[in-house]
Design a protein around this nucleic acid. Structure first.
Lengths: 184, 184
DNA sequence: ATAATTTACCTGTCCAGACAAGTAAAGCGC
DNA sequence: GCGCTTTACTTGTCTGGACAGGTAAATTAT
């Protein structure tokens, strides 16, 4: 034990939970007023940490809204792609959405089981399966689009069009940076 | 709501994704697309879509680098919090990282099994368990910090300090917007 | 003091996502 | 023809993450 990590072993007599739960008593760690997710850990990468938090929050909103229509986060992207582009090869779906082939297999299986897509063997290439949205899925389309509009609205808040454009540009810059780095 | 998915609501053709629903797909038509990742699906929420892509890319980078040290994305946040704040209650860990209590339970179990954390029953409150980093975990600390610095660098690219600050501000604005929306 | 409630944690279930490995079909080289 | 490589898809396994439900302990109300 001598080697207790971080000299912090006592920033609080931590072994003593401080009896208080959630109130600013004498506990250091617990004092963070919900919302201050900025432990010094973030110092190593504030932007990375922010991306992580934003991603989780965003996904939470999407998931909460998608629940009404019986979809899970990620599935709506597949459906949107199908509604928009019509029947497509499964591999193209995976590539366009940046998803794993294995993940797409299972996502499509679940969507098929739920009755939102149909799988058709391709006549000219027996390896591929064409995925197409079912008529039943069309009933969801407007709702899903409304959900995305709602999430977009929540995400952007009261920003002006200019601000929105800058936000998008910022995200695209990050995306581009990461893409470039991935190729190195 | 600025932009109701208006135009797209049902440009009609939509009711028939592509006409052929149920026919042996002739994949020639479907095979053609070899596009990039910007289907019209993004029209419903370009920023939301961008967040999604950035999050996945970012996680991919983190995961790839974290692999060397035997951690999975998300686990490093727990370790950083522990290294930084010392022994803490599991529930505080979950709250600080914005994670689910159930998720934290299993993440801690895995980290314990991997020998990176230890679980200590709390003397004054038998419900809580104090999580503390092991000496062995300290060997990873520098490496994890390097990894985060690397990811941060990849994320920000060649941006100036000013640009970085703006990027961070943009992400924090989104985070704040989503938090506000969540409370409504 | 007893009962109700809140808190902390665990388990089960389902989802996405990533990696590895395997199958079948297509394409290419010979 | 024949073999090798690539492509498309599937399955297994492991992870985070979310929700529901369940237990035990602490807190609060009665």
């Amino acid at each position: 034990m001598s080697t207790e990590p971080s000299g912090s072993t006592e920033p609080s007599g931590s072994t003593e939970p401080s009896g208080r739960v959630g109130e600013p008593a004498d506990c250091d760690a617990a004092c963070a007023p919900a919302g201050l997710s900025m432990p010094a850990s973030a110092a190593a990468g504030p932007v990375s940490h922010a991306i992580f938090r934003v991603a989780r929050l965003h996904r939470m909103h999407v998931g909460q809204l998608l629940r009404r229509v019986g979809l899970h986060p990620g599935q709506e992207l597949v459906m949107m792609q199908l509604w928009d582009g019509g029947p497509q090869r499964q591999t193209d779906l995976a590539r366009l959405l940046g998803s794993d082939a294995a993940t797409m297999t299972r996502t499509v299986q679940r969507l098929e089981h739920a009755g939102f897509v149909r799988r058709m063997p391709c006549a000219t290439d027996k390896r591929v399966t064409i995925i197409e949205p079912t008529a039943a899925s069309l009933a969801l389309r407007r709702e899903v689009e409304n959900i995305w509009a709602e999430v977009e609205s929540r995400t952007l808040g009261e920003q002006s069009d200019t601000g929105r454009a800058e936000t998008l540009a910022t995200l695209e810059r990050i995306e581009n940076n990461l893409k470039i780095a991935a190729r190195l």
